[in-house]
Amino acid sequence: MKLSILIMVLVVIVVFALAFYVIVKFRRRPNDKIPVQVEGNHKLEIIWTVVPIVLLLILAVPTVKHVFGLAKDYTKDPDAVQVIVTAHQYWWEFEYPQYGIKTSQELMIPTGKTVSVQAKSADVIHSFWIPALAGKIDTNPGANVNTMFFSADHDGVYLGKCAELCGPSHALMDFKVKSVNEGAFDRWVAAMKEPGKLPADPAIAEVFEKQCLTCHAVGDKGLQLYPNLTGIGDKETIAGILVNTDDPQYKNEGTTHDNLKRWIEDPQAVKPGNSMPKVDLTPEQIEGIAKYLSEYKLNVEQ
C-alpha cells in the first residue's frame, strides 16, 4: 500500500511537471507560425508504454503476494481466537464458539493474538470494517460465510464501522474493538459465563424481566435474539453510537446512565429504522433500568 502510494506520487509529479512545462512553454504568441504537424514518435511511444508496464509489474508482485497472504484460513487454528460475526440491522453480534459466549457491539480481543473472523449477515449485506486494524469484508446473507483475520499489537479501543449501505441507520452502525491483555481477556470470558444479575429493586427487576429479557439477555437469563446486555456498564458506547464518557463535549456524548436513558426513551430517534420499539415504561422504570444497567459492570481490567 505504501509502495503503491509512492509509485503513484512519482507518476503524478512527472506528469504534472511535463504538463506544466508544456502549457507555459508553448502558449500561442503573436506571429506564431503553423507548427510542424508531427504524426508521432515511435521511440517516445514505446517508452511511455513500457515504463508503466514495468511500474505495474513492480506493483503486481506484492499485490498478488498479499492477496494470498490475507486469504490464509485461521478458522481451524486452535491458537487463534475464533469469532463468528453476525451483522444485523443495525448492530453487531460476536460469538466466541471456543468459549460458548455471545456479546454484541463490543468485540473483546486479547492483544497480540490472531483473531479469526467468520462473517455473515442475518438480513441485508453489511461490511465489517475496523479501519485502524484491518481491511473490510462483506457479510452476506444465507450460507455464504466470509473469513478474515487480524490482530491488535497494542491494548486499546478501536472504532469499527459498517461499510456497506444497509438502510437508514447505516451511518450509525458503529462498533468497538477492545484489545486487552490476555489475563483481562480470560477474566472477561469467565465473567460472561457467570449467572446474570437482576436489578436489586424487585419492582424494576419484574419490569426488566417482562419487558427486556424477552429479547435481550443478561448472563444466563433472557433470550439472545438482540444485543446481549451482560456487562453493558463497561461498554464504550450505547447502541454503538451514543458515546459513554464522564466528560461530555459533543452532541452524542453522555454518561452511560444518560445515554441508556436517552436510548430507552426513544430508540427510533437515536437510530432510525432499528428493531427496538419504544417500550411502554414509566419514567421511573426507565430511570431504574438505566441505573441498573449502567452499574452492571464485569470489572475485568485491574
Binding site: V15, A19, V22, K33, P35, N41, P52, I53, L56, T63
Partner: peptide
C-alpha cells in the same frame, strides 16, 4: 488476484493517451 492484475493493465493504454495529449501540445501553438 486476477482481477487486480487485469485492472492495473488498463493504466497502460490510459497512460499512452495522457502522454499523447501532452505531446500534442508540445511544440504547438496553444
Amino acid at each position: 488476484a486476477l482481477f487486480s492484475i487485469a485492472t492495473m493493465l488498463i493504466a497502460v493504454p490510459t497512460g499512452i493517451k495522457i502522454f499523447n495529449w501532452i505531446f500534442t501540445m508540445w511544440g504547438g501553438s496553444i
